[in-house]
Amino acid sequence: MSIRFLPIPTETATAYRNGAPDAYGNPPERMTSKGTGNPCRHCLDFIPDGAEMLVVAYSPFGARQPYAETGPIFLCADDCATYDPHRGVPAIFDGNTMLIRAYSRDERILYGTGEVVAPDAFTNEIAARLARDDVAFVHVRSSTNNCFQARVERSD
């Protein structure tokens, strides 16, 4: 099975860069990147050390409901190219242990699908979840801070 990693929508990143309020109604915060610890959720690359970045509260769900988590994400403060979902696994996941969790079509967590996975099992574990009929998508999250990183779907 082929999988594709989806960044946050360009329209969303652009809105935040133009000062749109985040999921909690606050303006984006501007900070300076510390390099490899600051992955942009739009280009799915690390924001260069010393570059300006945005920090916003973000919910990667279509509607508010009990399973629609909200948390901090980083974005390049300047325009960046959206990640091409057909490029394979983004470099921000190379060598990193990540938390993965599967969701149903109505964006509910499917219990028993959440797991912290080692780098060598990362894509196989995602593909195994996406092979299930009841799974619509998988979220990749930080294994240490639980921050949303990217959405993963089956590739056509």
Rank of each mutant, 00 (worst) to 15 (best):
residue 16 Y to R: 04
residue 101 R to I: 13
residue 52 E to C: 08
residue 85 P to D: 14
residue 15 A to K: 02
residue 1 M to P: 13
residue 70 T to Y: 02
residue 148 F to V: 06
residue 146 N to T: 08
residue 97 T to N: 08
residue 47 I to C: 11
residue 128 A to W: 01
residue 95 G to T: 11
residue 78 D to M: 13
residue 144 T to W: 04
residue 43 C to T: 06
residue 65 Q to F: 09
residue 112 G to K: 06
residue 84 D to R: 14
residue 1 M to R: 12
residue 82 T to H: 10
residue 121 A to R: 15
residue 63 A to K: 14
residue 100 I to N: 01
residue 107 E to Y: 04
residue 48 P to T: 08
residue 40 C to M: 06
residue 39 P to V: 11
residue 141 R to F: 10
residue 11 E to G: 08
residue 44 L to Y: 03
residue 49 D to M: 12
residue 72 P to N: 07
residue 79 D to N: 09
residue 11 E to D: 12
residue 54 L to G: 03
residue 125 E to S: 15
residue 37 G to R: 06
residue 2 S to A: 13
residue 70 T to K: 08
residue 80 C to L: 04
residue 1 M to F: 13
residue 77 A to D: 00
residue 4 R to W: 12
residue 119 P to A: 05
residue 5 F to P: 00
residue 18 N to D: 12
residue 122 F to I: 04
residue 15 A to R: 02
residue 144 T to A: 15
residue 31 M to A: 09
residue 33 S to H: 07
residue 115 E to T: 14
residue 92 I to S: 10
residue 54 L to I: 05
residue 90 P to K: 10
residue 27 P to G: 13
residue 17 R to I: 05
residue 3 I to P: 03
residue 45 D to P: 08
residue 114 G to W: 02
residue 116 V to Q: 11
residue 71 G to L: 11
residue 78 D to H: 14
residue 99 L to D: 12
residue 17 R to G: 01
residue 81 A to R: 08
residue 96 N to W: 12
residue 40 C to H: 05
residue 74 F to D: 02
residue 148 F to L: 07
residue 121 A to M: 11
residue 140 V to G: 02
residue 3 I to Q: 06
residue 35 G to C: 06
residue 128 A to H: 03
residue 44 L to K: 01
residue 92 I to E: 08
residue 116 V to D: 11
residue 58 Y to S: 00
residue 98 M to L: 13
residue 22 D to H: 02
residue 49 D to A: 14
residue 134 D to N: 02
residue 152 V to H: 01
residue 148 F to P: 00
residue 15 A to N: 01
residue 99 L to M: 14
residue 62 G to Y: 03
residue 133 D to V: 10
residue 103 Y to W: 09
residue 33 S to F: 07
residue 137 F to I: 09
residue 77 A to F: 02
residue 118 A to R: 15
residue 43 C to A: 10
residue 80 C to W: 02
residue 138 V to L: 04
residue 60 P to Y: 07
residue 25 G to V: 06
residue 18 N to S: 14
residue 138 V to Y: 01
residue 114 G to Q: 08
residue 34 K to Y: 08
residue 112 G to C: 10
residue 17 R to Q: 05
residue 81 A to K: 06
residue 135 V to A: 00
residue 17 R to H: 06
residue 74 F to P: 00
residue 107 E to L: 04
residue 44 L to Q: 04
residue 155 S to K: 10
residue 46 F to E: 00
residue 150 A to E: 04
residue 86 H to P: 03
residue 125 E to A: 15
residue 138 V to N: 01
residue 121 A to I: 06
residue 57 A to Y: 10
residue 62 G to L: 04
residue 73 I to V: 07
residue 42 H to P: 02
residue 63 A to E: 14
residue 50 G to V: 12
residue 95 G to R: 14
residue 36 T to H: 11
residue 128 A to Q: 03
residue 107 E to W: 04
residue 5 F to G: 02
residue 148 F to W: 11
residue 82 T to Q: 15
residue 127 A to Q: 13
residue 135 V to G: 00
